[in-house]
Amino acid sequence: MDAVDRNIINRLQQGFPICEFPYTQVAAELDLSESELLQRLTHLLETGVLSRFAPMYHAERLGGGLTLAALAVPAERFEAVAAIVNAFPEVAHNYARQHSLNMWFVLATEQPERVVEVIELIEQQTTLTVYNMPKQTEYYIGLKFEA
């Protein structure tokens, strides 16, 4: 990753235009050719530096369900429980964290009522208590990282 890649990553986190030739427009801003931008973007995605390049949909405004939930998993069962949780397509992210609540996952569902169903299924299959922590107020979401 060089300075050009970093410029691309920083620019593409800001928002991508909706127009006939959007890559041409962004490439011009970055003083690149369209083909070089596409080549580098493809490489950044293939190598996993970027996990996605796509519209970021707002789950609640789509009428879906979204929550953050946590589990206190005994160390010897950690991998088995992770496999159970990750097997649900509704689990969008799952992180191991240093705490007695050591597994934190985000559930995103098309139907809001499905959140509670998935939580119940995870509780049944893991025999653990799921601590459901849906957001009550969003103060800020930016999620931009300077490359």
């Binding site: 928002g15 991508f16 530096v49 996990s51 970021m56 405004r61 999620l143």
Partner: peptide, 20 residues
Amino acid sequence: FMLDHGVIRRIAAVPNHYAL
């Protein structure tokens, strides 16, 4: 339309922050 109404937050790259 979806962008104007916040259904799409933005069309953007999502970095793997570990990789950065």
